[in-house]
Structures are given as C-alpha cells and as structure tokens.
Write a protein that binds this DNA or RNA. Structure first.
Lengths: 143, 143
DNA sequence: GCGCATTGAATGCACAAGCATTAAATGCAG
DNA sequence: CTGCATTTAATGCTTGTGCATTCAATGCGC
C-alpha cells in the first residue's frame, strides 16, 4: 500500500503528508535494519560506515573534515565524534593538514579499508532487500 | 543533481547506493527542518507532532498505544516516552482501557487538538518547501 | 482454579545527535 | 605589525532513541 511516492503532481495537503509518510517509513525501516546489521556483523554504526564509504571514494582515501561534513548530512559535532570513534578503533587517522592548520585531514587506514570492504556486502544486501522489492515486486532481468 | 530516486530499473549496486543516498538526503534535511520548526514555533518534536497527528485522525481522537506503535515506526520504548511527554504537557491523557487492562488508551485533549491545529500549517509548509520543489522545479497549476 | 507462556507498556541504561560554546588558526583592515 | 572577524574543529550539555529488562494483565492447558 501507498506507493504514490513520486507520482502525484497534485500536491494538495494530504498528498504531501502521504508522500512524507512514505518517505519516512521507507527511510526509517531501512535505516533501522542497516544500522543493526552493520553493527551486529561488523561493529559499525551507519554513520561510521558512511564515513568509511566516503573515504573509500575519496581521491587518496583521505579528505578534510569539512568536506566530509558537506557530503554527509550530519551535524558538525556529530561528525567530529564519529571520526573520533573511528580513529579510536584504528580505522582512520586524523592529522592536521599543512596548508591550513585549522583543518583536519582524515585518512583511511588499511584496517579501515578492510572493514569497509567486509561491510559493504551487508550494506548492499540490506539496500537491495528494501529498495528492490519496493520497486519491482516481481520479475527478473531482461530477456 | 541526483534525481533518479524511483527511476532506474537496473538496480545494480551503485544505483542502489545512489538511491539510498537520495532517500537519505531527502529524509534527513526534511526531518531536520521539520523538527526544528515544530519545536521553535510550537514546542513540539516531530515524534510528538506525529502522535498528535495520528490521534486527530483516529476515530474518536483516541486509540491504544499498540495501535500507535504500529502506525508510527518508533520503538515501543520511545513511543512510551513521547506519550508520557505529551501527557505531561496536557496534550493527551492516558488511561487503561476496560476490556484489556494491560493496554493503555490514549486520548487527545482539547489542548492537544488545539496545538495540533496550530502546528499543522507549519508542517505543511515545511513539507511543501521540501517536497514540491523537488518534484516540480518550476511551473504552477493547470490552466 | 492453578501455573505458565504471551502480550502490553514502562523503566534502567547506554549512546548518538544537535545546539551552544570554546579554542585555535587564518585572513584582512588599519 | 596589531587587532578583529571568520573559519574549522572539538567539547559540555541536554535530549531522544533503542535494547534489554521488568512488571502487570491476559489467555491457555491441565
């Protein structure tokens, strides 16, 4: 039920609310599963994993705090602590960059890359479970 | 950028992740705004408002805790506390129902209905701001 | 009727997140 | 060069949330 999500150009109030509830439900249940599975199987929270994820994508496995903050939708303080946790676990290192000593450069360690690699299948599985079945209730690939 | 949200029947890994990030970004920014505006203007958190919202919709402005829990996606303990907060503020009352004395019946008070009515425009405004501009970047109603 | 598993809600506890503040480095005006 | 506003990140504090536990009421088998 309720699969109007992106349909509905009408946008009267109740459609708005209905859309919001769809988004909310989708996000919440996915987030909950993801958070729990990442934590159970890999000792990572969702935010932790996401930081690792961004770092893996980043040019040399490193980037500045502020850049992470822009990409991640998390308050500055929260990000600061997530990174602190990850550093405590040895999954990344923080050091201040030479050119601007206010900035902190965050760099993925081998252990971090490893942990991320191990965790990624879990993430993908959860995403697939939630997102795929939402969109294509049945049916497989093309001919 | 990134408006694949529901498109993409391909569903390979990166599309999955991209979709998730879209959902996540959409939800997070909306939630943050909503939470803050409801709190600033009406002294309500998002969860609080949502409980009121469900109650307003409910048959006689009342329903059982468990029913709320089913509808709301919030852990049982969190719900328990939200309701406790709302009761403390006089926006609803809890009493146990006669037929099953384990269950708690939650009933909206006038103050609660009033608060909800005042807060609803704020909610709709935030929803519209986020959801409408996402879907129809420009263009108004039909001729 | 009596015990026992089940269900419904509340509570102790731990933790992540946001806000406000603080501290340090930088940039810029004079 | 000096002083001041700005930027960057970390920290104190408060709060909301989830998990596990607890307590009460119910239902069921016997």
């Amino acid at each position: 039920m309720a699969r109007r999500t992106i349909k509905a150009g009408r946008a009267d109030d109740s459609a708005l609310v209905a859309d919001w509830r769809d988004i909310s439900a989708c996000y919440s249940s996915l987030r909950c599963d993801l958070d729990r599975e990442l934590d159970d199987h890999h000792g990572l929270g969702m935010s932790e994993f996401e930081v690792l994820d961004r770092l893996v994508e980043a040019p040399a496995g490193e980037c500045r705090m502020h850049t992470l903050g822009d990409a991640m939708y998390l308050s500055q303080s929260a990000l600061s602590r997530v990174v602190a946790r990850l550093e405590r676990e040895g999954l990344l290192v923080r050091d201040m960059c030479a050119d601007d000593r206010r900035s902190v450069r965050v760099r993925l360690t081998e252990a971090g890359a490893d942990r991320h690699e191990k965790a990624r299948p879990t993430q993908l599985a959860v995403l697939a479970r939630h997102l795929r079945e939402e969109r294509q209730p049945a049916g497989d690939g093309p001919a």
